[in-house]
């Protein structure tokens, strides 16, 4: 299997804070990876780098064999031009913790916007695609609802449909269920699980909810202090963690 995402010795700092430290990471095409770890461990930054929302200070990041970031000593060896970022972003879709729907557009409008304006489909084609995606996430009856009239779970399902509308090869979920009421987590998880069945779609989920990792992932990485400390199957990581830090984290999560 070819690698869909590669991180080669990546450093990322915010001022004095080291967020990624000589970070190596590989995800094969079609793999479903969950990254767990305490907050501040660099998980979200990792996703933002893949989405090209954040650059790196050092090292190399490639998507589907194509270089996205290549930096040495804080200098970019690949110029992050608008065209380069747009090319690379077309491979990736992202779902955010706080949904980030556009409040001035209906559910249908939110999902149709990118196909209409970025892919240049006609209004009718874009809306047809949006309606089909919203049906897939179980929101056929909410097409004309504005985000403010939807529950958190419904908003997040719209956000997933919106990210899928550009047919990405990689889907990123940044704490996608963390802002939801507990009884709303299930409906979003169900949609994510359906996506996880798509064989060719590569998924990276960042979460501190073990249940989410268990439901989606065929591989779990435990991350802390800008490094991956343990990497294995869900069975191994969750049931017999080898690293002391992983054990401490899992104990803390189970207590909460």
């Amino acid at each position: 299997m070819s690698d869909m995402i590669t991180f080669d010795k990546v450093d990322k700092r915010f001022g004095q804070t080291v967020v990624l430290d000589q970070f190596d990471f590989r995800v094969a095409r079609g793999e479903k990876v969950a990254i767990i770890g305490p907050s501040g461990s660099g998980k979200s930054t990792l996703l933002r780098i893949i989405m090209a929302l954040q650059d790196i200070d050092q090292g190399k990041v490639s998507l589907d064999g194509r270089p996205l970031w290549d930096a040495a000593g804080g200098k970019h060896r690949i110029k992050p031009t608008r065209k380069h970022l747009r090319d690379m972003r077309s491979l990736v879709g992202m779902v955010f913790q706080n949904f980030n729907l556009f409040p001035n557009l209906t559910a249908l409008g939110n999902v149709a916007a990118a196909p209409r304006h970025v892919l240049g489909l006609s209004q009718a084609e874009a809306e047809a695609r949006a309606a089909a995606l919203l049906a897939q996430v179980g929101l056929s009856d909410k097409l004309q609802n504005y985000p403010a009239t939807l529950s958190g779970g419904q908003q997040q399902r719209v956000a997933i449909a919106r990210a899928m509308a550009l047919e990405p090869e990689i889907m990123l979920f940044d704490e996608a269920t963390s802002a939801l009421d507990p009884e709303r987590v299930g409906e979003v998880l169900e949609v994510m699980r359906a996506l996880a069945h798509e064989r060719d779609l590569t998924i990276v989920v960042v979460t501190h909810q073990i249940g989410v990792a268990r439901a989606i992932a065929d591989r779990i990485c435990f991350m802390e202090g800008g490094r991956i400390l343990e990497d294995g199957t869900p069975q191994q990581i969750l049931n017999e963690p080898r690293n002391e830090r992983t054990r401490a984290f899992l104990r803390a999560v189970h207590l909460s």
Binding site: R89, F96, F102, A114, H117, V118
Partner: peptide, 27 residues
């Protein structure tokens, strides 16, 4: 305008003017 809206627009590959017209100005 919340940064999250801008992140979402960037993730959807909107150009600067599309972001302005579709996301920022209405908001």
């Amino acid at each position: 305008v919340p940064q999250g809206q801008l992140d979402a627009a960037a993730a959807l590959n909107f150009s600067y003017f599309q972001t302005l017209r579709i996301v920022i100005l209405p908001e």
